[in-house]
Nucleic acid binder design. Structure first.
Lengths: 213, 213
DNA sequence: CTAACGTTTGTCCAACCGGTCAAAAATTTG
DNA sequence: CAAATTTTTGACCGGTTGGACAAACGTTAG
C-alpha cells in the first residue's frame, strides 16, 4: 500500500475499495444488532466472508470500522432535515419531512439502530459532532420553523421539541421494531405497519387528538 | 444457604436481601450505560463495593442479574399504562398518561435505557413477554381508546400507533438525553427541558400543528 | 464454648478477543 | 517471463472476562 499524503484521501486499489465496502456492509449488520462492544472482529470478518487478519489488513483497528461507518451514516441520516426548506407551504413541508424520515426508518433500520446504540451509550465517539454540526443544523431549521409560526402558517410551539418529536416517532419504528411487531401481532405487524404509521403520524402532527367540532 | 422449595421464592437472610438490592442498583447503573455485553462483573462488583467472587455468591451468573433487573423493571415500567382507565375524561386521561410517562423518563432514565438497550438488540431475553403480557395489556388499552373514539370524545385514529407515539416521544428524553442536551445547548438544555417538553407534547397531542383559525 | 451455617476473599482457569507478524499466495507491472 | 507489489492466511500473544473453588472469616444457635 502506497503511503497517503497528509490530509488527502488515501489512494486505493480496486480490490481495496471493494473489500472495504464489503467489510462496512458486514460491520453495519453486526454493530447494529450487537452494539460496538458486543460485536467481535471475528463476527464481522465471517459476515464479510474473510479471515480476521485479512479484515485487519483493510481496517487496522475495530474502532476504525465503526468510525468510518459513523461518518458516512451521518450525512445520509441528516439529509432529510437539510432538505427542509423555506420555499414550499409549511404544513406540506413538515408533512413530507415526516414522511421521508419514516421511509428512512423503513429502508435503513440498521443505520437507525447503529445511531441509537451510539447515543444510548452516551455518544462517546460523536458527542463533538452533536454539539457542533448537528446543533448548528437544528438551530438553523428551528429558525425557519419559527418564521412559519410568526407568519401564522403553523401553530406556535417549541421548534426544537417539535424536531425531537419527529425524530422520536419515526425512528421508533426502526429502533423498537421488535416491540412494534410483537404488540401489533402477526396480522397487523406485517408490511402494512409503516403505512398505518404514516397515516397516524400525519393526523397526529396536523390535527392532534381533539375531536372535530 | 438453605435449599429453596421448587416453585416458591427462595428463603433469604437479611444480609442476602440487602446485598442483592445493592448489586441490582449497581448493575442498573452499569448495564444501562454500557449494555449487557459491554458491562463486566468486575465493574458491577466495584460499583456495589464488593469483590467479584462475593458478587457471584449472590448471583451465580451475570445473566441472572440482568434477568432479575428486567423482571422488576417491567412492572414499574408499565404501571402508567395500567393506570390508564375508562373512568375519567378521555383527553384528561391521555394527558396525564403522557405526563406520567415523561416524569418516568425524567426520574428513571437508567431504567428506560436498560429497556431500550434490550429492545434495540432484538429483545433476546424478553421477546416472549412482549408478545404475551405486553401485547395483552396494549390490546386492552387500545380497546378502551377505541371506545372513546366511538363516543366522539377524541379524534379517530389508530390506538396502537397512538400508544407507540406516546412511548417514543417521552422515552426519547431519557434514551437520547445526550443528543437532546447537545442540541438544546447549555442554556436551554438544563433542568427546564422536561417542562418545555411537557408543554410541547401536550399541545402536539391535543391540537397538532395546524394554526388556529 | 463450639458446632453449624453464612459470608468473603485470593487464587486460579479456560475461553475469548483485539491485534501482530512473518511467510505464502495472488496479482500487477515492466 | 520475472520482479515488485498487494492480498491472504495460520500461528501466535498479551490482556480481559466469566466463572469455579477451597480456604478463611464471621455469625448465630444450642
Amino acid at each position: 500500500m502506497t503511503a497517503a499524503m497528509e490530509g488527502s484521501a488515501p489512494r486505493r486499489t480496486r480490490i481495496q475499495q471493494e473489500k472495504r465496502e464489503l467489510i462496512l456492509e458486514a460491520a453495519l449488520e453486526v454493530f447494529s444488532t450487537n452494539g460496538f462492544r458486543g460485536s467481535t472482529i471475528d463476527q464481522i470478518a465471517e459476515a464479510a466472508g474473510m479471515s480476521k487478519p485479512n479484515l485487519l489488513y483493510y481496517f487496522r483497528r475495530k474502532e476504525d470500522i465503526h468510525e468510518t461507518l459513523m461518518q458516512r451514516l451521518l450525512d445520509t441520516w441528516l439529509a432529510p432535515l437539510r432538505e427542509l426548506d423555506d420555499i414550499g407551504d409549511p404544513l406540506t413541508e413538515l408533512r413530507s419531512y415526516i414522511r421521508r424520515k419514516l421511509e428512512m426508518a423503513r429502508d435503513f433500520p440498521r443505520e437507525s439502530r447503529l445511531f441509537a446504540n451510539e447515543i444510548l451509550q452516551g455518544a462517546p465517539r460523536i458527542k463533538p459532532m452533536l454539539e457542533g454540526e448537528l446543533k448548528t443544523l437544528v438551530d438553523e431549521k428551528a429558525a425557519v420553523i419559527k418564521g412559519w409560526m410568526r407568519a401564522g402558517k403553523i401553530a406556535r410551539t417549541d421548534p426544537w421539541h417539535l424536531i425531537f418529536s419527529i425524530w422520536a416517532t419515526t425512528q421508533h419504528y426502526a429502533d423498537f421494531d421488535v416491540q412494534v411487531r410483537a404488540v401489533l401481532g402477526a396480522d397487523r405487524g406485517g408490511d402494512g405497519r409503516f403505512e398505518d404509521a404514516a397515516r397516524f403520524l400525519e393526523q397526529l402532527f396536523l390535527d392532534g387528538l381533539k375531536p372535530k367540532g
